[in-house]
Amino acid sequence: MSIASTNRMTPYLFLAPAGLVLAFALFYPICYMIYASFLDWNPSQRIGEAEFVGLRNYFKLFSDDAFRESMGVTLKFAAVVVTIEMFLGVGLALLLDRNIRGMSVLRTLFILPMMIAPIVVGLMWRYMYHPTVGIFNKTLKSWGFDGIPWLSDGSWAFASVVIADVWQWTPFIFILSLAALQSLPASAIEASRIDGASGWQQILYIKLPLMLPVLIVTLLLRLIDSFKVLEVILVMTNGGPGLSTEILSLRINRTASEFRELGEAAAMSNLLLIVLLILTFTMFIYNKAQDARAARLRAVEEEV
């Protein structure tokens, strides 16, 4: 082998161990899951003993009301939390992007919720939502209002898990937006002030459009994450009451452990995986398009 081709091979050689780990830790389970989704498989059986049923699991899912509802809850949950979080996170970033004494402390405080383990977040909120000893109802009652059935009424329970998720993940959008804001060209914003833009107009016409690439990636990242949320809701409501908060990952969990239908759970996981893959590809394509655009602009610049 010539030296040049050895040199070309070197990076792959270094990548090989990671590639091997990836193959075993990622591709093998995925293939396993895809195969399992074609089986009628009970946890007490070994995989070889399970009966091959083809696409029956998938067909069953599409006619399964509980699954459809769970899919609906997941979509609703993702749409609602990401929308609220985007508005709050970007809004907070716009609000806190200034040099005031103590601002750095405040910023650090704001991102704390993100660093708490989801299980702990779930427990924390479950206690706060507790109908009698929780802080919310205690406060409400001390003010003379009735308690709210935070986790025992379907619509309230959905709102409650949304609030908990918003509490935990708004900081994520906040820090990314803040970073984007602080890297904006200061002089362009000053120029807009001279041009007569009010505070709102600066945000609307200059800051937000310039932040847009970061905001889109942030949105997609959060969307992907919100489809996978499990622990917080598991701890808080375990999907109930009824199916009101049973998001897809909970449904999968239940199908596997409670209903003992491993094949069906695998089919659901595959569907969720497809949804996430679509989102990930959207982000990938968006990034590619951005890179291509930047490259084209650079080329034009060198030319002129």
Binding site: P185, S187, A188, E190, A191, S192, R193, I194, D195, G196, A197, S198, Y205, I206
Partner: peptide, 15 residues
């Protein structure tokens, strides 16, 4: 904006 002036910046500050 209330001072009736226009400004050209060192780094052009274009949008």
């Amino acid at each position: 904006k209330e001072r009736d002036l226009a400004m050209v910046f060192q780094d052009y500050a274009l949008y």
